[in-house]
Computed example of a mutant assay.
Amino acid sequence: MATPVNQRVKKRRDVLRAAGFRPVQICMPDTRRPDFAEECRRQSQNVAAADAADRYLDAFMDVALS
């Protein structure tokens, strides 16, 4: 008889914990949503506008690169 899923998951997590890991839950945007691409575009435009308005950014990036 197969082991129930929750027991297999618990066993796997116990092995990972014993190896020094801990489980972390991460929430990600749903890329399948119809408005996902438009929201990415909107946020990218906001970042680009903020970068363009920052007159010290290019100098900072040059120093960081060197």
Rank of each mutant, 00 (worst) to 15 (best):
1 M>A: 13
1 M>E: 08
2 A>Q: 12
3 T>F: 04
3 T>G: 02
4 P>N: 13
4 P>T: 09
4 P>R: 14
4 P>D: 15
5 V>Y: 11
5 V>Q: 11
5 V>A: 10
6 N>V: 12
6 N>F: 14
7 Q>E: 15
7 Q>P: 01
8 R>A: 06
8 R>D: 06
9 V>Q: 00
9 V>W: 01
10 K>V: 02
11 K>A: 15
11 K>W: 08
11 K>L: 11
11 K>H: 12
12 R>F: 11
12 R>M: 08
13 R>P: 00
13 R>N: 05
13 R>F: 04
13 R>W: 02
13 R>D: 05
14 D>T: 03
14 D>S: 06
14 D>Y: 02
15 V>H: 04
15 V>I: 13
16 L>W: 06
17 R>K: 13
17 R>W: 01
17 R>T: 08
18 A>R: 02
20 G>S: 01
20 G>L: 00
20 G>D: 01
20 G>W: 00
21 F>E: 01
22 R>D: 04
22 R>K: 13
22 R>T: 08
22 R>C: 04
22 R>P: 00
24 V>G: 01
24 V>D: 00
25 Q>A: 10
25 Q>S: 05
26 I>P: 00
26 I>C: 02
26 I>Q: 05
27 C>N: 08
27 C>R: 13
27 C>K: 09
27 C>P: 00
28 M>L: 13
28 M>P: 00
28 M>R: 14
28 M>V: 09
29 P>I: 03
29 P>N: 03
30 D>Y: 04
31 T>A: 09
31 T>Y: 05
32 R>Q: 12
33 R>F: 02
33 R>G: 02
33 R>A: 14
33 R>H: 05
34 P>S: 12
34 P>Q: 09
34 P>D: 10
35 D>C: 03
36 F>R: 01
37 A>D: 05
38 E>I: 08
39 E>C: 04
39 E>L: 10
39 E>Q: 14
40 C>R: 03
40 C>W: 03
41 R>N: 09
41 R>I: 08
42 R>Y: 03
42 R>E: 07
42 R>L: 10
43 Q>G: 02
44 S>Q: 10
44 S>P: 00
45 Q>H: 02
45 Q>K: 09
46 N>M: 11
46 N>Y: 01
46 N>L: 12
47 V>W: 09
47 V>H: 05
48 A>R: 14
48 A>L: 15
48 A>G: 03
48 A>H: 07
48 A>K: 10
49 A>N: 07
49 A>P: 01
49 A>I: 02
49 A>L: 09
50 A>T: 05
51 D>M: 11
51 D>C: 13
51 D>W: 10
52 A>Y: 03
52 A>Q: 12
52 A>K: 10
53 A>F: 03
53 A>K: 11
53 A>C: 06
54 D>H: 05
56 Y>E: 14
57 L>T: 04
57 L>I: 04
57 L>M: 07
58 D>E: 14
58 D>R: 11
58 D>I: 06
58 D>C: 04
59 A>H: 07
59 A>I: 03
59 A>N: 05
60 F>Q: 10
60 F>L: 14
60 F>H: 14
60 F>W: 14
60 F>A: 09
61 M>V: 15
61 M>E: 15
61 M>Y: 14
62 D>F: 08
63 V>L: 15
63 V>H: 09
64 A>I: 08
64 A>Y: 13
65 L>G: 07
65 L>F: 05
66 S>G: 11
